[in-house]
């Protein structure tokens, strides 16, 4: 990216946890680095697409809301993800569409009512100095974003200069509802064959509840305990969405900030399309796992991408 950086926003209040995230830091597992990136890829991709940004542009991932900004230049924004009351100069504005913002405008993202993570994109994308080719913030590693930390009040956010785009939004039927009861498709993998029939029946036949221990690293679930024949396993690479079964038998679904390797048995991995939805839930939500093959998962990914590429958007004049 060679375009110049402009001042975009001053942070008045950073909320509970607001992080700069691009698509993630790939190819660095050799250093033991997580990929980071958006917990909800679907909402992240739409935030950039509504503005015509490159797909890997940096956005803000705002957990639970509470972010207040003052605009430092005329720009365009979009806000996707968790349903929330959002206002521009005290007038309510819609999510899942782009808006024009003037210098001096005040943007308030209040508290999420359904879902828990919002994505704020700016035309051109946020500009920070990338670390190992990515802006993605991984707080545990102190890498990415601004000084590897969550955003703070009084910081200035920069963006890349860009041309204004026509204002676009999604039709209501294409906006996710962030249900609290999910079906998670699970690609059978890793040690799947070493779990006995009873354990598999228990795992797929029961609902699990999202516990308080749920963050960007992983979601710990509670429900009927799953047993695994052995406790001694060599640490191995962990894929996105992998479902670990630790000694207490309570599954943990691993997210974007997961460690690169781990030694717990894994029954398979959740489809990324469903992982995005799980990452919008909070404690008390329930999930049910459905087994799928890697072939079915592959088809689903292609269908979802075709839908993303071909969804008709609504045009707005203001």
């Amino acid at each position: 990216m060679t375009s110049e950086a402009l001042q975009a926003f001053k942070i008045l209040d950073a909320g509970m946890l607001s992080l700069i995230q691009d698509a993630g830091r790939f190819g660095q597992a050799k250093l033991g680095l997580s990929t980071g990136g958006p917990a909800d890829e679907h909402a992240f991709m739409w935030a950039n697409k509504l503005l015509g940004n490159p797909a890997n542009s940096a956005t803000l991932e705002i957990t639970m809301g509470g972010l207040h900004l003052e605009s430092l230049s005329d720009c365009q924004i979009s806000i996707t993800g968790a349903h929330c009351s959002v206002s521009l100069n005290n007038a309510e504005i819609s999510q899942w569409r782009s808006h024009n913002v003037a210098r001096g405008d005040k943007l308030s993202i209040n508290f999420a009512s359904a879902g828990c993570r919002l994505y704020l994109a700016v035309g051109g994308g946020f500009s920070v100095t990338p670390q190992l080719n990515s802006a993605a913030t991984v707080v545990r590693e102190g890498i990415g974003g601004i000084n590897g930390k969550p955003l703070k009040a009084n910081q200035i956010l920069n963006r890349f200069a860009t041309q204004n785009q026509p204002l676009l939004g999604l039709y209501r039927e294409d906006i996710p509802d962030y249900s609290k009861n999910l079906q998670l498709r699970l690609i059978k993998g890793y040690q799947y064959d070493r779990f006995d029939r009873l354990q598999k029946a228990r795992f797929f036949g029961n609902r699990y509840t999202v516990s308080q221990l749920a963050d960007r690293m992983g979601y710990r679930l509670t429900g009927p305990a799953i047993e695994f024949p052995t406790r001694t396993m060599l640490s191995e690479g962990i894929a996105l969405g992998a479902v670990q079964i630790p000694a207490d038998g309570q599954p943990i679904v691993l997210g974007k900030d997961r460690q690169t390797i781990g030694g717990y048995p894994k029954i398979g991995s959740v489809l990324s399309l469903d992982l995005s939805k799980l990452m919008q839930t909070t404690a008390g939500a329930t999930v049910e796992f459905t087994p799928v093959t890697i072939e079915e998962a592959h088809n689903q990914l292609h269908l979802a991408r075709a839908k993303f590429n071909n969804t008709t958007m609504q045009r707005y004049t203001e």
Binding site: F26, G27, A29, L234, G237, A239, T260, H298, L301, R305
Partner: peptide, 19 residues
């Protein structure tokens, strides 16, 4: 097409771009 490779004690995780 390779997004990441994660070598470990006795294994190698090969992560690819499925699209």
């Amino acid at each position: 097409d390779i997004l990441d490779l994660v070598p470990s004690f006795n294994s190698l995780l090969v992560i690819y771009n499925a699209l």
